[in-house]
Structure formats: C-alpha cells, structure tokens
C-alpha cells in the first residue's frame, strides 16, 4: 500500500504511484503532483479549445452527419 503522503499523487495519476516515490518528502510529492495536474489542465484546455474550433472547419454539408457520429453513444 502506498505511503499516505502519496495520496495527492495517486489522485492525479488515477492509480497507485510506484512505491519508490515514497522516498520523496511530502513537499516533493506535492510538487510532482502539482506539475502533473498543471500539465493535465493545460492539455484539457487545449483539447477543449480545439474541439470548439473543429466544427467550424468542416464543410457545411458534412456538419450534420459528423455531429451525429461524434455525439452518438
């Protein structure tokens, strides 16, 4: 089981961090978790902005069928 100070990292990873990271201090773990969180947030923002722009680039005639396919499921 991961050491308790690894919890923040586990939340960002979505799975247990490698045990060797228990050698890090609480501050260092928080710093590493923060770096991963920032990267995830940057990427999520880039993905959202890209998704918002994408439909405008599709030829008008294709927008309906494409939207149906993307939104299905």
């Amino acid at each position: 089981m991961a050491a308790s100070h690894l919890t923040a990292l586990q939340e960002e990873l979505g799975s247990a961090p490698p045990r060797g990271l228990a050698a890090l201090s609480e501050e260092e773990i928080a710093e590493l978790a923060g770096a991963l969180r920032e990267r995830k947030e940057d990427q999520a923002l880039a993905l959202k902005q890209a998704g918002d722009k994408a439909f405008g680039q599709i030829p008008r005639l294709l927008r309906g069928p494409v939207k149906k396919m993307v939104l299905r499921g």
């Binding site: 990873l13 961090p17 060797g20 995830k40």
Partner: peptide, 18 residues
C-alpha cells in the same frame, strides 16, 4: 533519490493519465 525504474514507471502512468 528515486530509483530510475520507479521514475520510468511514474512517467508511463503519467502519460496514461494524460
């Protein structure tokens, strides 16, 4: 201060999380 194998394992998990 962390073994290279653990840094690698963390990187692969981080990529998966992303």
């Amino acid at each position: 201060k962390v073994d290279a194998r653990d840094v690698k394992a963390f990187r692969l998990k981080a990529v998966d999380a992303l």
